[in-house]
Amino acid sequence: MAYKPQYYPGTTSVGKNRRKHMSGDLEKLRDISDADIVTIMGHRAPGSDYPSTHPPLKEMGEPDCPIRQLVEPTPGAAAGDRIRYSQFADSMYNAPAIPYWRSYWGAINCRGCDPGTLSGRQIIEARERDIEQYTKVQMDSEMTDPALATMRGCTVHGHSLRLDEDGMMFDMLARTELADNGNVNYVKDQVGIPLDRKVNSGKPMSEAEVAKRTTIFRHDNVPFGGAIGSRKFDEGLIALHHMWERRSKWGFRPE
């Protein structure tokens, strides 16, 4: 029987969502056009050529290397694209993704990327045409709720702050706004430079929906140990305890 990765233990909804994120088996909820994604990222004008840092690999005459023969380059690497990034801040109020799970998703599912995990934000770097594709997956899928997750290249403050009155995550640079039609529009790119036009990133999820789709354990939603009052902890917490115990007892072995 072929090996099937388990990714993450536990029977809670958060455990299931974490498995979904890690496996890349994500539900697509909206369709934001490529041009809109490029506009929000702000690295190049939509439709313009990709600037490059080196000639295409086929023209470079690569050395005879078994690894290079084994690993097929990503489209961005093959074309010699620049390294570019997209960075997201996710609210601690039940945002669907959190930095670690964006990184797990990136590291497991995206070739040629460099995920960086921080406390309140998460950045993925990759070749330009690759990162555009990876960013689109994040923004189109259940990993992102437009109100609780925003692409923020700088001044990311907001993850651990209370929400605004309208349910939007606080943004010091006012990059997004909740329109009258219920959609969340980007009015600035990820570093706060105003856009020529508003970019629709979809409707926010309801509170019940984000509580269902979140990968965050919270005492007021799904606690780490599973249902409150149950006789046994959820497997997710037991597995974590197990890892901590093993690491504490045998992690340090100088011999």
Binding site: G42, G153, C154, T155, H157, L161, F170, M172, L173, A174, K188, V191, G192, I193, P194
Partner: peptide, 17 residues
């Protein structure tokens, strides 16, 4: 939290908000 009058960091530094 502070609401800055202009973008404090990054490529857009100095742009008015």
């Amino acid at each position: 939290p502070n609401l800055p009058r202009m973008v404090p960091y990054g490529p857009g530094k100095g742009l008015p908000i």
